[in-house]
Write a protein that binds this DNA or RNA. Sequence first.
DNA 1: GCATTGACGAAGG
DNA 2: CCCTTCGCCAATG
Length: 113
Amino acid sequence: MEYSAKTYSFFDDVFAVVRLIPKGRVTSYGAIARYLGTSGSARMVGWAMNASHTPKPKVPAHRVVNSQGLLTGKHHFETPTWMQELLEKEKVKVKNNQVVDFEKLFWDPSVEL
DNA sequence: GCATTGACGAAGG
DNA sequence: CCCTTCGCCAATG
């Protein structure tokens, strides 16, 4: 990844936002996309997360779920259950692949930030 | 350079 | 209420 002017992509932006997610809170790909102005292209956010393990301070991607609060990206972690375990470590309850009280734990960057 | 894919989301049937 | 389709944009084959 070159740092040449325009290559600084939204990757860094996405990472920055995700890292700002308070512990014990979660957000959605769409919310992040909206905050970055790339609303509508939530896929890019999700796609960016594909490299969430690239930078040194790895991004807490486990705090990012889809709009339904589902742990859709769990398969991209070291183990299929790792994401849930990480969340539970932060007192976030996960039931049947879904964040419990998702609406209450939801953290919207365009609102909170 | 075209076709396919993707950790999404909203809308339509 | 469940399933399908479409849009979005970038990367990869």
